[in-house]
């Protein structure tokens, strides 16, 4: 396999290297890629959509259809991880760890043993639990709301600065994952259950696809936000801008929820019991 790999790599590499001499130079403003379609975006995005961030305008409007499927890709990934690794909750793990709150003694309860849940005197801990996590836990609890706020800002400000649904969604999801890492998976699942993460990820894509279908039923083409002007009560250019915001929020919800959903399944090997 090693020689085969080397041969494949060198054949492809030689070919690519040889052809790279025919490329336009790096940063050449006169290269075909910079002359044909892209000047249209740069020069017209402001008057077409009134969005100064051209990347956002191209992403969510000119090539909005790509982005719909991009969101669908990430949704499929969440669904696929669930489908592949999730195991039924009925399977009780081999052994569980409990800590007696008053004394701090840790108990290991074998499979089949009676679990001291609901008594209030015991706390369930993970096998990989780190004892002195007060500082980490407190810091993360303090930081999480600000990260989430920043995520919302990134989504909302995607029209004017680098950002948008994907970036904001990932930051939002990361905040929840940080919470899960700093405390434990079960507590996070109480705040945001698996069902709600699944429903939200579906809902996010649904907002995007639904906006597209709404435009279609309003008589314009699929994802033609111009049609939203009648509903939103604004002119057609502003409707495009608003349409972009709507779909970007949908993307944000979907990405955040999918990130959390994937984390739930991958970190606990599908058991959703003990996380990282």
């Amino acid at each position: 396999m090693r020689t085969l790999g080397l041969i494949a790599a060198f054949c492809l590499g030689g070919l690519l290297f040889f052809i790279s001499f025919d490329f336009p130079s790096w940063g050449d403003a006169l290269s075909p890629a910079s002359r044909h379609v892209s000047p249209y975006y740069i020069e017209h995005s402001l008057e077409d959509t009134s969005v100064p961030n051209i990347v956002t305008a191209v992403l969510a409007d000119y090539r909005g259809f790509d982005t719909l499927f991009e969101t669908a890709v990430i949704f499929s990934a969440g669904l696929a991880c669930f489908f592949l690794v999730r195991v039924s909750e009925r399977q009780v793990p081999a052994a569980r760890f409990y800590r007696h709150l008053a004394t701090g003694i840790t108990f290991r309860i074998e499979k089949g043993g009676r679990l001291p849940e609901g008594t209030g005197e015991f706390e369930r801990i993970d096998s990989l639990w780190v004892p002195y996590d007060v500082i980490i836990g407190m810091t993360c609890r303090l930081v999480v709301p600000f990260i989430q706020l920043f995520a919302l800002y990134v989504i909302a400000h995607g029209h004017h600065s680098p950002g948008g649904g994907f970036q904001g969604g990932v930051i939002f999801g990361a905040a929840i994952i940080l919470f899960a890492i700093s405390t434990n998976l079960r507590r996070t699942l109480k705040r945001m259950s698996e069902r709600s993460s699944a429903l939200l990820s579906s809902l996010g894509v649904l907002i995007y696809a639904g906006t597209g279908l709404l435009c279609l039923f309003m008589g314009a083409g699929f994802l033609n936000y111009r049609a939203l002007a009648a509903i939103l009560g604004v002119d057609q250019v502003a409707a495009r801008s608003d349409g972009i915001l709507i779909v970007e929020s949908g993307v944000g919800i979907a990405v955040a929820a999918v990130m959390v959903w994937i984390y739930y399944n991958l970190s606990s090997a599908g058991k959703q019991d003990e996380g990282l």
């Binding site: 892209s38 975006y41 191209v58 790509d66 991009e70 890709v73 499929s76 990934a77």
Partner: peptide, 21 residues
């Protein structure tokens, strides 16, 4: 040129999704 950036946002998402699966 904004177009490659848009395309690569898609490709990044695809690669993350593939990685997850």
């Amino acid at each position: 040129n904004p177009l490659p950036h848009v395309l690569m946002l898609t490709a990044i998402v695809v690669s993350v999704a593939t990685l997850g699966v």
